Simulated assay, not measured.
Amino acid sequence: MTHYATGRLLLTPVDRDGHVRAERLRTLGLGERADTSFDSFDAFADRVAEVTSTPYSMVNFIDENRQFFAGLHTPAGNRSGADLGAAAAGCHRSGRYMARDHGYCPHVLVRRKALVLEDVCDYPRFAGNPVVDEIGIRSYLGAPLIDRTGVALGTVCAVDTVPRPWGRPGLATIKSLAQELIGQIDRREAPRR
C-alpha cells in the first residue's frame, strides 16, 4: 500500500490505459504544453461554471503521470490556477498541471463513468484526498471525455468549496456537457483525418 506523507492511504485508481491515452492526446495535440492556446477550452470551462453555478470548473486531460487543465475557470478568473491552491496541491508550471493522485478526475477516467460527490467528506475514499485540505474542495461533479476511438481523454468537472446537492439533474448536466465537448474535440480532429 502507498501512503501520502501525511500518513493517509493513497487511493488513486490504477490506470492501465495511461500509455494509450497519452499517445492519443499527443495525436490530438492536447495536454502537452501550458503555452498552447486553449482559449476554447477556457471558454468551455467558463460555461460549465455558469451552468453549474460553481466557483471552479475544468477541462482536464490526464496522461500517465499528471493532469493538465486545458480549460480552467476560477473565481478570480486569472486562469493561472493560483487561486486553486496550485502550489499546495502538487501543481506546477502556471498552475495548469496537477499531480495525478490529487483530485477526483482520475477516478472518473478509470471508471469511465460520471462521478457525483455532493459532500466528499461523506466518502472515506474521497475525503482523504489532498484537495480537501489543501484547496478546500467539498463537492465534485465530473464526467469522462470519451472520444470517437473509445479512449477516455480526460474529464470535464465542476467543484465547489461547500457541499452541493447535485442530484440527478447535476449528473445529467455534466454528462451532457461532456458529450458536447467531445463533439467539439472530434470536429477539431476532422480536418486532420
Rank of each mutant, 00 (worst) to 15 (best):
residue 35 D to N: 14
residue 63 D to R: 13
residue 185 I to E: 13
residue 103 G to D: 10
residue 40 S to A: 14
residue 154 G to S: 05
residue 117 L to T: 10
residue 24 R to C: 06
residue 15 D to W: 04
residue 158 A to T: 07
residue 70 A to R: 14
residue 189 E to H: 05
residue 115 L to W: 01
residue 166 W to N: 09
residue 40 S to P: 12
residue 143 A to P: 12
residue 69 F to M: 15
residue 74 T to N: 12
residue 17 D to E: 12
residue 147 D to K: 09
residue 87 A to K: 09
residue 141 L to A: 03
residue 151 V to S: 03
residue 5 A to V: 10
residue 143 A to D: 03
residue 46 D to K: 05
residue 54 T to Q: 09
residue 142 G to V: 12
residue 102 H to F: 15
residue 101 D to S: 06
residue 178 A to S: 08
residue 118 E to K: 00
residue 43 A to H: 08
residue 36 T to G: 09
residue 17 D to I: 02
residue 188 R to Q: 14
residue 171 L to T: 09
residue 183 G to R: 12
residue 146 I to K: 03
residue 165 P to C: 00
residue 139 S to W: 01
residue 59 V to Q: 02
residue 112 R to D: 00
residue 104 Y to W: 08
residue 36 T to P: 14
residue 46 D to L: 11
residue 168 R to S: 08
residue 16 R to M: 05
residue 85 G to A: 06
residue 161 T to M: 11
residue 6 T to I: 10
residue 90 G to D: 07
residue 141 L to Y: 07
residue 190 A to L: 11
residue 25 L to R: 03
residue 94 S to W: 03
residue 36 T to N: 15
residue 104 Y to L: 11
residue 65 N to W: 02
residue 3 H to F: 14
residue 165 P to G: 07
residue 124 P to H: 05
residue 113 K to G: 02
residue 6 T to S: 14
residue 59 V to F: 01
residue 53 S to Q: 13
residue 133 D to H: 05
residue 112 R to C: 05
residue 185 I to M: 13
residue 131 V to R: 00
residue 88 A to N: 05
residue 60 N to Q: 12
residue 46 D to I: 00
residue 148 R to I: 08
residue 115 L to C: 07
residue 101 D to H: 03
residue 25 L to S: 06
residue 144 P to H: 02
residue 133 D to T: 10
residue 101 D to Q: 03
residue 171 L to R: 13
residue 74 T to Y: 06
residue 3 H to N: 13
residue 125 R to N: 10
residue 111 R to P: 02
residue 77 G to E: 08
residue 45 A to S: 11
residue 83 D to V: 14
residue 38 F to I: 14
residue 46 D to M: 02
residue 162 V to K: 15
residue 55 P to M: 15
residue 74 T to G: 13
residue 129 N to G: 08
residue 108 V to T: 14
residue 168 R to L: 03
residue 93 R to Q: 10
residue 131 V to N: 06
residue 48 V to S: 09
residue 74 T to L: 12
residue 6 T to P: 01
residue 175 K to E: 15
residue 189 E to L: 01
residue 34 A to F: 11
residue 25 L to D: 05
residue 111 R to M: 04
residue 101 D to F: 08
